[in-house]
Computed example of a mutant assay.
Amino acid sequence: MKVLKVVDKIILKIEEFILSYAVIIIALMVVGKAIIRETFGYSLPFADEVSQIAVVIATFMGISYAARKGRHISMSAFYDLAPFKARKVLAIFIPFVTAIVLFVLSYYSWLYVMDVRESGRVTSALQMPAFYLYIFIPIGFLLGGIQFLRNMWVNIRNREDVYLGTDAKDYNDQDTTEELEGTHL
Rank of each mutant, 00 (worst) to 15 (best):
residue 38 E to Y: 10
residue 72 H to N: 08
residue 103 F to Y: 10
residue 16 E to F: 08
residue 13 K to F: 11
residue 91 A to Q: 04
residue 170 D to P: 05
residue 146 I to S: 06
residue 141 F to A: 08
residue 137 I to M: 14
residue 7 V to Q: 03
residue 54 A to W: 03
residue 16 E to Q: 13
residue 117 R to A: 15
residue 120 G to V: 09
residue 172 N to Q: 11
residue 41 G to H: 03
residue 147 Q to W: 01
residue 116 V to E: 05
residue 3 V to C: 06
residue 141 F to T: 04
residue 154 V to T: 12
residue 137 I to E: 04
residue 108 Y to K: 09
residue 13 K to P: 00
residue 132 Y to H: 10
residue 38 E to S: 13
residue 51 S to I: 01
residue 85 K to L: 15
residue 39 T to N: 08
residue 66 A to K: 04
residue 3 V to P: 01
residue 78 F to I: 12
residue 176 T to F: 08
residue 183 T to I: 10
residue 134 Y to V: 01
residue 108 Y to H: 11
residue 169 K to D: 01
residue 161 D to E: 12
residue 80 D to H: 04
residue 145 G to H: 06
residue 39 T to S: 14
residue 182 G to P: 00
residue 14 I to H: 01
residue 21 Y to D: 02
residue 126 L to H: 02
residue 164 L to N: 09
residue 55 V to G: 01
residue 105 L to P: 00
residue 63 I to D: 01
residue 2 K to F: 07
residue 55 V to P: 00
residue 172 N to K: 09
residue 109 S to A: 14
residue 73 I to P: 00
residue 21 Y to I: 12
residue 39 T to L: 14
residue 45 P to H: 10
residue 25 I to T: 15
residue 178 E to A: 12
residue 92 I to R: 04
residue 110 W to Y: 15
residue 52 Q to G: 15
residue 60 F to W: 03
residue 183 T to D: 12
residue 20 S to H: 04
residue 47 A to Y: 05
residue 148 F to S: 07
residue 35 I to E: 03
residue 31 V to C: 06
residue 133 L to V: 14
residue 70 G to T: 06
residue 97 V to M: 11
residue 16 E to L: 11
residue 28 L to R: 01
residue 33 K to W: 03
residue 65 Y to S: 10
residue 139 I to R: 04
residue 171 Y to Q: 10
residue 94 I to S: 13
residue 41 G to Y: 02
residue 173 D to Q: 11
residue 3 V to M: 09
residue 139 I to T: 07
residue 32 G to H: 01
residue 86 A to P: 00
residue 157 R to A: 15
residue 176 T to Y: 11
residue 1 M to Q: 12
residue 55 V to T: 07
residue 78 F to K: 05
residue 58 A to M: 08
residue 177 T to Q: 13
residue 46 F to R: 01
residue 116 V to N: 03
residue 16 E to K: 08
